[in-house]
Nucleic acid binder design. Sequence first.
DNA 1: AGATTTTGACTGGCCTGTCAATCAAAATCA
DNA 2: TGATTTTGATTGACAGGCCAGTCAAAATCT
Lengths: 214, 214
Amino acid sequence: MTQVLQDPIPRKMSRDTRRAQLIEATIETLALRGYARTTLTEVAHTAGLSHGLVNFHFDTKEKLLSETLSLLAEEYRANWQAYLHRAGVDPAAQLAALLLADFDPAICTQARLSAWCSFWGEAQSRPLYQAQCGANDAAYNACIAQICADLLAQGGYSGDAARVARVLRVTIQGVWLDMITTAPDYTIEEGQATVHACAAAFFPRHFSAAGVIL
Amino acid sequence: MTQVLQDPIPRKMSRDTRRAQLIEATIETLALRGYARTTLTEVAHTAGLSHGLVNFHFDTKEKLLSETLSLLAEEYRANWQAYLHRAGVDPAAQLAALLLADFDPAICTQARLSAWCSFWGEAQSRPLYQAQCGANDAAYNACIAQICADLLAQGGYSGDAARVARVLRVTIQGVWLDMITTAPDYTIEEGQATVHACAAAFFPRHFSAAGVIL
DNA sequence: AGATTTTGACTGGCCTGTCAATCAAAATCA
DNA sequence: TGATTTTGATTGACAGGCCAGTCAAAATCT
């Protein structure tokens, strides 16, 4: 009803807006229908557009999926780096930031987790995953390993930094997988508590199940 | 050359043999081509049989996938229960057994891990997963939680058994996912060491990165 | 008017499931 | 034992349906 007065909903929108809209619809469709049943018609319908538009903006389905993964990867990278930057220079604060970053409401939604899981699970998308996320993952690994090394040294803990970092990383990954595959009664708080319990086991004077100890 | 003397390779085999053969081919195809590209023709070709046979033995593709998941689930359950049984009554030995069970060469192959991952990642297969694996997973969770509770009590550790159990479980899950999605330079030994490092963090007098301390 | 976006019908290809014909082994008969 | 029938596994061609990508026409914007 207010339709006429305010936004005439321009049929013709900027290229980037349409592309973003279609990518968002792709994420939703991947989550709802799964990789195998994600069709261009379904994506277009979810976006409220016609099927031909997808090919107009992305040429092929493969490119659409590639750009979708690219968006997820960039969003993920930007998120943890922002958390890390805000944490300052203290290793414990940095580690706490990294652990919480993956549960940020912008990143950790049912749809996005499911979409990630689609790309992990589908063998044919693994080369694509390596190409899009390999560098990001390597940067993340180097970063969390360095932070663990600093915290081990600073806190006088013993342990192999790379291995501690790996445990923390796979724990987060495992919690993510758990949040998707098990019933949806899994809250973000429980996920955070699980990861914090893991951190507390390695760094008992810096972490508890409730989070970082300042 | 000995062909004529011994096995003439019977064209006609027992129902169960063929079904097992086709299920094994399904696992390989899921791993190699992914869920979305797994076709009946591909499965039949991998098994060296004709495509019509798949429908003859399984009626529908859906039933073939269902029985494949069923086999994986049963195989997995039988494996950890056998490990647990052999471990006796000591909680530390029991936990060590559970941690090692998931790296048994019969269970932890590239093909089987990939197939599991296909079922996790494909949204459409999640109800099937719940139906086939829900009860098994619940039993596993209850079991590892009880063992953690016993070990916490026996060792005089402090901590929430359910949460410690969850961390260990998601760590194993995360390592599995890691072994599939990252480059294949991930050895079983490294996976075991990662899980053991996690156990050592919670139970330092019972575990080291090398495994259980007797 | 000219440029650009959007639509929806169309096509060619692939996939699942069906089915009639084939074939090998087992069972039965002479 | 040798011939014949029955059983049930196996094959490959086929039909129906769905999907990605194309394209000409329409709608919209500048």
